[in-house]
Design a protein around this nucleic acid. Structure first.
Lengths: 187, 187
DNA sequence: AGTGTAGGCCAACAACTGTTGACATGTCGT
DNA sequence: ACGACATGTCAACAGTTGTTGGCCTACACT
């Protein structure tokens, strides 16, 4: 176990500033200079600690969706609601998700990271829900399409009706959709 | 009626190249120089005809969703399927939609354009479907969230299961969702 | 035929980008 | 107290960006 280094606070400040900038501006417009200014350090420190801009993004975009174990849910009819609720929570308290979405749209490394996050974290959760079903990845992609679509319209594009919709209404509308994608027979 | 100018072919070439670049690269990485190179003209011509980069984007991102009149549909239960099919068509033969999506995520002018397109084109179609209903904008936003979410995962992020899904399967899965958002009672 | 003007090209600008290396400062073990 | 090493600062680099103004060319009208 590596002992705490004196520079850890600087590293952390850089990461936090980077996450904010990537989330607010996307990859290109989030400049190393602006990130360094936010973190109150010299731009060259970013290079020293993270190699280059890609390395910084890789470090800043590490994320754990913290998906719950849906098989442990007493009421199997509520998996859709639970999942929507969980994603709304995650999106609202972790700007990395918005950063990932913004960067993934214009940067191939960001898109790749987005793909692997969903394949490695959402995929297994969906698979465990219907053991032996070969179409689990497809169902996971359908879930992702609705979840990401709502995040896009509500938190990034900010379509007024999507922004104004109360959280409970979002859950009420989206839960049956997600439930359908997860549990319905193939149409 | 203004007579055809000699420069119209150049203007058109610039617009076409701009649409391609914006769709492929987003706003920041679609440089005026690259667009000019594609159109086989000098970068200064872009400025002469469109003022600046923002003006070029405004001109290149004009779009008509060509939404069908859903009230004229004989079978009211098929509005969801018709809409999904229509959007898949539009997305696959008009790169402006991808450009709008890519730019809207990192550029405020792009996001504004996206908002107005959906408010002015999708909004009325949804409103006409349930006359007198006050929640039409909300339903339109829900439809937008699912449509844009699928476009995002399939055409931009390229999640493999979403890319591999045959067109007919996409329609079969998404149609009930859209139908629900358009016609279900408030949950 | 001559001329005004629209169309087009070239070279340059100032600002900004990621990135680098040299140099100063501080901290720690000895 | 001294040297080694981590931490931080400064200035500069080469390249790219949007944008501008001057200049040349070819067409259209009288």
């Amino acid at each position: 176990m590596p002992t705490a280094r004196r520079s850890d606070t600087t590293r952390a400040a850089i990461l936090e500033a980077a996450r904010e900038r990537f989330a607010a501006d996307g990859y290109e417009r989030a400049t190393i200079r602006a990130i360094a200014r936010d973190a109150d350090i010299d731009p060259s420190m970013v290079m020293r600690y993270y190699g280059n801009k890609e390395g910084l993004f890789a470090a800043a975009s590490a994320i754990d969706l913290r998906l719950p174990d849906l098989t442990a849910l007493p009421d199997r009819d509520r998996v859709g609601a639970v999942l929507v609720e969980h994603f709304l929570d995650r999106w609202e308290d972790d700007e990395v998700l918005t950063a990932l979405l913004r960067v993934g749209v214009t940067n191939e490394a960001g898109a790749a990271r987005m793909r692997s996050v969903f394949a490695e974290q959402l995929g297994p959760v969906v698979r465990d829900l219907r053991p032996g079903a070969a179409d689990a990845p497809r169902r996971a992609a359908l879930v992702a399409s609705q979840i990401l679509g709502m995040a896009l319209t509500r938190y990034v594009l900010r379509l007024p009706p999507a922004v104004d919709m109360p959280r409970t209404d979002v859950i009420a509308w989206l839960a049956p959709t997600i439930q359908h994608y997860l549990t319905a027979d193939q149409p």
